[in-house]
Computed example of a mutant assay.
Amino acid sequence: MKKFILFALSAAFSLNVSAQKGLTTGVKAPAFTATDNSGKKIDLKALLKSYKSVVLFFYRGEWCPYCNKHIQQLQDSLQLLTAKGAYVIGVTPETGDNIKKTIDKTHASFSIVQDKGYAIMKSYDVNYVLDEAIVNKYKGFGLDLNAANGNAEHVLPVPATYVINSSGIISFVHFDKDYRKRATVSDILNVL
């Protein structure tokens, strides 16, 4: 039954993200500032002065098993990533309370940012809005996006990953509208 639910959600997801393209390698990464889960100010420009690169990834929420698996993989390999001079940032539309649930599930110790107004998601062209039929299907499976994200806008990101080099240029992109597919740690390490 669980596989059927995930298949149904996957099929529905791919219908809603046809307009998103994401950014490509070789382009200047949009700068942003935000506050992470621990209250730390995150400024992309400042981070790129202190680190060789930034690994920026977008995830849907603590309710997404694929997101949690990816976050856990990044956490498990965090020493390898930081040893290559990378700073890791996760971006999500979920509330601060749900970010805490993500951290409890994954033990993530890197920065996670709530993108309340979706400015970061929009600037990286990963945002999309679920239609009401999909929102209602999610509710039928026990997922209340209004509660998860703290609003009724139903915006989620394509779970993309970007590696941004110290010059502010995107050197790696993993952008797949199938939310089950994520960048591997080895792919990320190969470009750091």
Score class of each variant (00 low, 15 high):
residue 2 K to A: 14
residue 2 K to H: 12
residue 4 F to W: 11
residue 4 F to R: 14
residue 6 L to G: 09
residue 6 L to R: 10
residue 7 F to A: 15
residue 13 F to M: 12
residue 14 S to A: 10
residue 14 S to M: 15
residue 16 N to Y: 08
residue 16 N to F: 09
residue 18 S to K: 15
residue 19 A to G: 10
residue 19 A to T: 12
residue 20 Q to G: 01
residue 24 T to Y: 10
residue 26 G to W: 12
residue 26 G to C: 10
residue 27 V to N: 10
residue 28 K to G: 07
residue 32 F to K: 07
residue 35 T to P: 08
residue 37 N to F: 09
residue 38 S to A: 12
residue 38 S to F: 07
residue 40 K to R: 10
residue 41 K to A: 13
residue 43 D to T: 06
residue 43 D to S: 09
residue 45 K to Q: 13
residue 45 K to I: 12
residue 49 K to M: 08
residue 53 S to F: 05
residue 53 S to G: 15
residue 55 V to I: 12
residue 56 L to W: 02
residue 59 Y to M: 06
residue 61 G to L: 09
residue 63 W to N: 11
residue 65 P to Y: 12
residue 67 C to S: 13
residue 69 K to C: 08
residue 70 H to T: 05
residue 70 H to A: 13
residue 71 I to S: 07
residue 71 I to Y: 06
residue 72 Q to F: 12
residue 73 Q to Y: 08
residue 73 Q to A: 14
residue 75 Q to A: 04
residue 77 S to K: 13
residue 78 L to Y: 12
residue 79 Q to M: 06
residue 80 L to Y: 03
residue 82 T to G: 05
residue 84 K to W: 03
residue 87 Y to K: 11
residue 89 I to H: 05
residue 93 P to T: 00
residue 94 E to P: 02
residue 94 E to A: 00
residue 95 T to Y: 08
residue 97 D to T: 11
residue 99 I to P: 01
residue 101 K to Y: 03
residue 101 K to H: 10
residue 101 K to F: 07
residue 102 T to V: 03
residue 102 T to S: 15
residue 103 I to C: 06
residue 103 I to M: 06
residue 104 D to I: 14
residue 104 D to K: 15
residue 104 D to A: 15
residue 105 K to H: 10
residue 108 A to Y: 01
residue 112 I to D: 02
residue 115 D to T: 07
residue 117 G to W: 05
residue 117 G to H: 14
residue 119 A to W: 07
residue 120 I to H: 13
residue 121 M to C: 05
residue 121 M to V: 00
residue 121 M to R: 05
residue 122 K to R: 15
residue 123 S to A: 14
residue 125 D to G: 11
residue 126 V to G: 07
residue 127 N to W: 05
residue 127 N to A: 14
residue 129 V to G: 06
residue 130 L to I: 03
residue 132 E to I: 15
residue 133 A to D: 11
residue 133 A to G: 08
residue 136 N to E: 14
residue 138 Y to Q: 09
residue 140 G to P: 05
residue 142 G to S: 14
residue 143 L to D: 08
residue 144 D to H: 11
residue 150 G to E: 00
residue 152 A to S: 15
residue 153 E to Q: 14
residue 154 H to I: 07
residue 155 V to P: 01
residue 156 L to K: 01
residue 158 V to L: 02
residue 158 V to T: 00
residue 159 P to S: 02
residue 161 T to H: 04
residue 163 V to L: 01
residue 164 I to W: 02
residue 165 N to Q: 05
residue 166 S to C: 00
residue 167 S to H: 13
residue 167 S to K: 13
residue 169 I to M: 11
residue 169 I to N: 13
residue 171 S to F: 00
residue 171 S to R: 06
residue 172 F to L: 04
residue 175 F to S: 02
residue 176 D to G: 06
residue 176 D to F: 09
residue 182 R to D: 02
residue 183 A to P: 04
residue 184 T to G: 09
residue 185 V to P: 04
residue 186 S to P: 00
residue 186 S to V: 10
residue 191 V to H: 02
residue 192 L to Q: 04
